[in-house]
Protein backbone atom coordinates (compact mmCIF):
# COMPACT_ATOMS: atom_id res chain seq x y z
CA UNK A 1 0.00 0.00 0.00
CA UNK A 2 1.29 3.38 -0.92
CA UNK A 3 0.49 6.79 0.45
CA UNK A 4 1.06 8.38 -2.87
CA UNK A 5 -1.53 10.00 -4.99
CA UNK A 6 -2.02 7.99 -8.14
CA UNK A 7 -4.54 7.40 -10.90
CA UNK A 8 -5.49 4.20 -12.62
CA UNK A 9 -7.09 4.20 -16.05
CA UNK A 10 -8.75 7.55 -15.36
CA UNK A 11 -11.14 8.71 -18.10
CA UNK A 12 -13.18 11.89 -18.07
CA UNK A 13 -15.88 13.02 -20.46
CA UNK A 14 -17.57 16.40 -20.64
CA UNK A 15 -20.78 15.59 -22.42
CA UNK A 16 -19.64 13.51 -25.38
CA UNK A 17 -16.14 14.95 -25.39
CA UNK A 18 -13.51 12.55 -24.15
CA UNK A 19 -11.08 14.92 -22.42
CA UNK A 20 -8.88 12.57 -20.42
CA UNK A 21 -7.94 9.19 -21.84
CA UNK A 22 -6.66 6.36 -19.71
CA UNK A 23 -4.46 8.32 -17.35
CA UNK A 24 -2.11 6.14 -15.29
CA UNK A 25 0.24 8.27 -13.26
CA UNK A 26 1.75 8.50 -9.85
CA UNK A 27 2.81 11.48 -7.81
CA UNK A 28 5.79 10.90 -5.50
CA UNK A 29 5.24 11.85 -1.91
CA UNK A 30 6.69 15.14 -0.67
CA UNK A 31 7.91 16.06 -4.10
CA UNK A 32 6.77 18.61 -6.63
CA UNK A 33 5.27 17.25 -9.82
CA UNK A 34 4.61 19.58 -12.74
CA UNK A 35 1.90 18.98 -15.31
CA UNK A 36 2.82 20.62 -18.59
CA UNK A 37 1.34 20.64 -22.04
CA UNK A 38 -0.36 22.92 -24.56
CA UNK A 39 -3.68 24.62 -23.82
CA UNK A 40 -6.58 22.21 -23.88
CA UNK A 41 -4.43 19.13 -23.26
CA UNK A 42 -6.39 18.32 -20.12
CA UNK A 43 -3.81 19.16 -17.46
CA UNK A 44 -6.16 21.42 -15.49
CA UNK A 45 -8.96 18.90 -15.90
CA UNK A 46 -6.68 16.21 -14.49
CA UNK A 47 -5.64 18.42 -11.58
CA UNK A 48 -9.24 19.26 -10.74
CA UNK A 49 -10.20 15.60 -10.73
CA UNK A 50 -7.92 15.05 -7.73
CA UNK A 51 -10.19 16.94 -5.37
CA UNK A 52 -13.41 16.16 -7.19
CA UNK A 53 -14.00 19.67 -8.48
CA UNK A 54 -15.79 18.13 -11.47
CA UNK A 55 -18.63 17.17 -9.16
CA UNK A 56 -19.89 20.69 -9.84
CA UNK A 57 -20.03 20.17 -13.60
CA UNK A 58 -23.39 18.60 -14.45
CA UNK A 59 -22.35 16.76 -17.63
CA UNK A 60 -18.98 15.47 -16.44
CA UNK A 61 -18.54 11.70 -16.36
CA UNK A 62 -15.62 10.06 -14.65
CA UNK A 63 -14.39 6.48 -14.89
CA UNK A 64 -11.36 4.83 -13.37
CA UNK A 65 -9.68 5.59 -10.13
CA UNK A 66 -7.91 8.37 -8.30
CA UNK A 67 -6.36 7.04 -5.16
CA UNK A 68 -4.80 8.53 -2.09
CA UNK A 69 -3.66 6.40 0.83
CA UNK A 70 -4.93 3.43 -1.09
CA UNK A 71 -8.43 4.84 -1.09
CA UNK A 72 -10.34 5.58 -4.29
CA UNK A 73 -11.67 9.12 -3.91
CA UNK A 74 -14.49 8.41 -6.34
CA UNK A 75 -15.73 5.46 -4.35
CA UNK A 76 -19.40 5.63 -3.44
CA UNK A 77 -20.16 6.83 0.07
CA UNK A 78 -16.83 8.54 0.57
CA UNK A 79 -16.97 12.07 2.02
CA UNK A 80 -16.13 14.63 -0.63
CA UNK A 81 -15.50 17.29 1.97
CA UNK A 82 -13.06 14.98 3.71
CA UNK A 83 -11.22 14.42 0.43
CA UNK A 84 -11.02 18.14 -0.15
CA UNK A 85 -9.65 18.71 3.32
CA UNK A 86 -6.85 16.25 2.58
CA UNK A 87 -6.21 17.53 -0.93
CA UNK A 88 -6.02 21.32 -0.91
CA UNK A 89 -6.17 23.50 -3.97
CA UNK A 90 -4.76 26.84 -5.09
CA UNK A 91 -6.37 28.40 -8.14
CA UNK A 92 -5.09 30.22 -11.18
CA UNK A 93 -6.51 33.53 -10.08
CA UNK A 94 -6.07 34.30 -6.39
CA UNK A 95 -9.53 34.00 -4.91
CA UNK A 96 -9.51 35.20 -1.32
CA UNK A 97 -13.00 35.43 0.09
CA UNK A 98 -14.46 38.91 0.53
CA UNK A 99 -13.68 38.73 4.23
CA UNK A 100 -10.79 39.81 6.43
CA UNK A 101 -7.36 38.20 6.14
CA UNK A 102 -7.84 36.39 9.42
CA UNK A 103 -11.30 35.12 8.47
CA UNK A 104 -9.94 33.79 5.20
CA UNK A 105 -7.71 31.39 7.13
CA UNK A 106 -10.23 30.69 9.88
CA UNK A 107 -12.98 29.77 7.40
CA UNK A 108 -11.57 26.40 6.35
CA UNK A 109 -10.43 25.57 9.88
CA UNK A 110 -13.90 26.16 11.30
CA UNK A 111 -15.55 24.19 8.51
CA UNK A 112 -13.47 21.18 9.42
CA UNK A 113 -13.88 21.68 13.17
CA UNK A 114 -10.22 22.47 13.62
CA UNK A 115 -8.65 24.92 16.01
CA UNK A 116 -8.95 28.43 14.52
CA UNK A 117 -7.11 30.28 17.28
CA UNK A 118 -4.88 33.27 16.48
CA UNK A 119 -1.81 31.08 17.00
CA UNK A 120 -2.91 28.63 14.32
CA UNK A 121 -3.69 31.47 11.93
CA UNK A 122 -0.32 33.05 12.64
CA UNK A 123 1.46 29.76 11.95
CA UNK A 124 -0.29 29.34 8.60
CA UNK A 125 0.63 32.88 7.59
CA UNK A 126 4.21 32.38 8.72
CA UNK A 127 4.53 29.28 6.60
CA UNK A 128 3.78 31.28 3.49
CA UNK A 129 5.99 34.18 4.62
CA UNK A 130 3.03 36.51 4.77
CA UNK A 131 2.89 37.05 8.53
CA UNK A 132 5.38 39.93 8.67
CA UNK A 133 3.58 41.72 5.88
CA UNK A 134 0.07 41.45 7.32
CA UNK A 135 0.42 40.99 11.07
CA UNK A 136 -0.96 44.48 11.78
CA UNK A 137 -3.76 44.22 9.23
CA UNK A 138 -5.37 40.89 10.07
CA UNK A 139 -8.81 42.47 10.27
CA UNK A 140 -8.50 44.26 6.92
CA UNK A 141 -10.21 42.94 3.81
CA UNK A 142 -8.10 40.33 2.05
CA UNK A 143 -8.95 41.87 -1.29
CA UNK A 144 -6.78 44.90 -0.42
CA UNK A 145 -3.62 42.78 -0.61
CA UNK A 146 -1.48 42.71 -3.73
CA UNK A 147 -1.95 39.86 -6.22
CA UNK A 148 1.07 37.96 -4.95
CA UNK A 149 0.03 38.41 -1.32
CA UNK A 150 -3.47 37.26 -2.15
CA UNK A 151 -2.11 34.11 -3.76
CA UNK A 152 0.10 33.40 -0.73
CA UNK A 153 -2.94 33.92 1.48
CA UNK A 154 -4.78 31.32 -0.61
CA UNK A 155 -1.85 28.94 -0.12
CA UNK A 156 -1.92 29.66 3.62
CA UNK A 157 -5.63 28.91 3.63
CA UNK A 158 -4.93 25.50 2.10
CA UNK A 159 -1.87 24.81 4.27
CA UNK A 160 -3.79 25.61 7.45
CA UNK A 161 -5.84 22.44 7.02
CA UNK A 162 -2.65 20.32 7.00
CA UNK A 163 -3.53 18.50 3.79
CA UNK A 164 -1.50 15.64 2.34
CA UNK A 165 -1.48 17.10 -1.13
CA UNK A 166 -1.63 20.66 -2.46
CA UNK A 167 -2.86 21.15 -6.01
CA UNK A 168 -1.82 24.34 -7.78
CA UNK A 169 -3.47 25.37 -11.01
CA UNK A 170 -1.10 27.83 -12.70
CA UNK A 171 -0.70 29.73 -9.44
CA UNK A 172 1.61 32.36 -10.91
CA UNK A 173 0.03 33.03 -14.27
CA UNK A 174 -1.50 36.31 -13.07
CA UNK A 175 1.54 37.47 -11.10
CA UNK A 176 4.55 39.66 -11.76
CA UNK A 177 8.06 38.09 -11.78
CA UNK A 178 8.91 39.10 -8.20
CA UNK A 179 5.70 37.66 -6.79
CA UNK A 180 6.21 34.57 -8.93
CA UNK A 181 9.68 34.09 -7.48
CA UNK A 182 8.27 34.31 -3.95
CA UNK A 183 5.66 31.67 -4.70
CA UNK A 184 8.30 29.40 -6.22
CA UNK A 185 10.51 29.76 -3.15
CA UNK A 186 7.49 28.95 -1.07
CA UNK A 187 6.83 25.80 -3.10
CA UNK A 188 10.41 24.71 -2.37
CA UNK A 189 9.77 25.10 1.34
CA UNK A 190 6.38 23.43 1.30
CA UNK A 191 7.51 20.25 -0.40
CA UNK A 192 9.21 19.15 2.82
CA UNK A 193 5.74 18.61 4.21
CA UNK A 194 3.35 18.27 1.30
CA UNK A 195 3.02 16.48 -1.98
CA UNK A 196 2.59 19.24 -4.54
CA UNK A 197 1.10 18.99 -8.01
CA UNK A 198 1.45 22.12 -10.11
CA UNK A 199 0.01 22.88 -13.52
CA UNK A 200 2.14 25.37 -15.37
CA UNK A 201 2.48 26.91 -18.79
CA UNK A 202 5.91 28.15 -17.98
CA UNK A 203 8.71 25.75 -18.95
CA UNK A 204 11.28 27.59 -16.85
CA UNK A 205 9.00 27.40 -13.87
CA UNK A 206 8.56 23.66 -14.27
CA UNK A 207 12.34 23.26 -14.36
CA UNK A 208 12.82 25.52 -11.36
CA UNK A 209 10.28 23.94 -9.04
CA UNK A 210 9.46 20.40 -10.13
CA UNK A 211 11.16 17.12 -9.27
CA UNK A 212 8.98 15.21 -11.67
CA UNK A 213 7.37 16.43 -14.88
CA UNK A 214 4.44 14.98 -16.78
CA UNK A 215 3.87 16.09 -20.35
CA UNK A 216 0.30 15.82 -21.58
CA UNK A 217 -1.06 16.13 -25.07
CA UNK A 218 -4.66 15.81 -26.31
CA UNK A 219 -5.93 14.25 -23.12
CA UNK A 220 -3.17 11.69 -22.76
CA UNK A 221 0.06 11.45 -20.83
CA UNK A 222 2.75 11.45 -23.51
CA UNK A 223 5.81 11.37 -21.35
CA UNK A 224 6.74 11.46 -17.70
CA UNK A 225 9.89 11.33 -15.70
CA UNK A 226 12.38 13.28 -13.65
CA UNK A 227 12.20 16.93 -14.67
CA UNK A 228 15.83 16.96 -15.63
CA UNK A 229 15.33 14.02 -18.01
CA UNK A 230 12.18 15.39 -19.59
CA UNK A 231 13.82 18.69 -20.40
CA UNK A 232 17.29 17.46 -21.34
CA UNK A 233 16.47 14.21 -22.98
CA UNK A 234 12.87 14.02 -24.15
CA UNK A 235 11.98 10.64 -25.67
CA UNK A 236 9.18 11.80 -27.92
CA UNK A 237 9.43 14.20 -30.81
CA UNK A 238 6.29 16.02 -29.65
CA UNK A 239 7.65 16.55 -26.14
CA UNK A 240 10.81 17.95 -27.60
CA UNK A 241 8.89 20.31 -29.86
CA UNK A 242 6.76 21.52 -27.00
CA UNK A 243 9.52 22.18 -24.51
CA UNK A 244 11.51 23.93 -27.18
CA UNK A 245 8.60 26.24 -27.85
CA UNK A 246 7.73 25.07 -31.35
CA UNK A 247 4.04 24.99 -30.45
CA UNK A 248 1.75 25.47 -27.49
Amino acid sequence: MTNNLYTKDLNIWFGSKHVLKGIDIEFPEKKVTALIGPSGCGKSTLLRSFNRMHDLVPDARIEGMVSIDGQNIYQKGISVTDIRKRIGMVFQKANPFPKSIQENIAYGLKLNNLDASPAVIQKALEEVYLWDEVKDDLKKPATRLSGGQQQRLCIARAVALRPDVILMDEPCSALDPISTLKIEELIHQLKDQYTIVIVTHNMQQAQRVADKTIFMYLGEVKEEGATIDIFNNPQHEITKNYINGHFG
Binding site: V80, T81, M89, N95, F97, Y107, G108, L111
Partner: peptide
Protein backbone atom coordinates in the same frame (compact mmCIF):
# COMPACT_ATOMS: atom_id res chain seq x y z
CA UNK B 1 -17.66 34.80 -9.36
CA UNK B 2 -17.43 31.02 -9.53
CA UNK B 3 -13.93 31.27 -8.08
CA UNK B 4 -15.32 32.16 -4.63
CA UNK B 5 -17.49 29.07 -4.62
CA UNK B 6 -14.65 26.88 -5.88
CA UNK B 7 -12.33 28.26 -3.22
CA UNK B 8 -14.87 27.37 -0.58
CA UNK B 9 -15.55 23.87 -1.93
CA UNK B 10 -11.81 23.24 -2.14
CA UNK B 11 -11.55 23.86 1.62
CA UNK B 12 -14.12 21.18 2.32
CA UNK B 13 -17.30 23.25 2.44
CA UNK B 14 -20.53 21.82 1.14
CA UNK B 15 -23.09 23.70 -0.91
CA UNK B 16 -25.07 25.01 2.04
CA UNK B 17 -22.00 26.24 3.95
CA UNK B 18 -20.70 27.93 0.82
CA UNK B 19 -24.05 29.60 0.21
CA UNK B 20 -24.48 30.86 3.77
CA UNK B 21 -20.90 31.82 4.58
CA UNK B 22 -19.45 32.89 1.24
Amino acid sequence: PKTYREGSYALGANKWETLIKI
